[in-house]
């Protein structure tokens, strides 16, 4: 009887310990959320601006040649003064391996801080 009680107490301690460990694990290993990602804008190889993807907004860049829009954790080229608008056609991006390129205006938008398992996309 006495040993049963002891066992139950040990069980409780063990379960409680595991629960605490689980909680700690959850906090430590939590994957970084989307809100940590940043859109980085480069013109001719120089970073000219950084915008957190958590803040919706429209930004006119590059002397008015390019306009990007950030919404719901994603970024896209909304408008561009370039011949083919290939950059606008590229649509929304949000992952570290993605980029938007406007070659005529030498502008590149990349994503930083996203723990994507993919290094490059083709």
């Amino acid at each position: 009887m006495k040993s049963d009680k002891k066992t139950r107490l040990r069980d409780i301690i063990l379960i409680a310990s595991l629960a605490v460990l689980g909680l700690v694990l959850l906090v430590v290993m939590r994957p970084s959320s989307e809100s940590g990602s940043t859109a980085v804008v480069q013109v001719d190889g120089v970073v000219i601006a950084r915008y957190p993807l958590s803040e919706d907004g429209i930004h006119v860049l590059n002397g008015g040649l390019n306009t990007i829009e950030i919404k719901d954790g994603k970024v896209r080229m909304m408008e561009a003064h370039c011949p083919n608008h290939e950059c606008v056609h590229q649509g929304w991006i949000s992952r570290g391996h993605q980029s938007i390129v406007c070659l005529p205006n030498k502008l590149v938008v990349t994503i930083e801080g996203d723990n994507s398992v993919v290094d490059f996309t083709l």
Binding site: D119, F120, T121, L122
Partner: peptide, 9 residues
């Protein structure tokens, strides 16, 4: 020593 991961769109 690890490899790169390429994604095909």
């Amino acid at each position: 020593g690890s490899k790169w991961v390429a994604g095909i769109k």
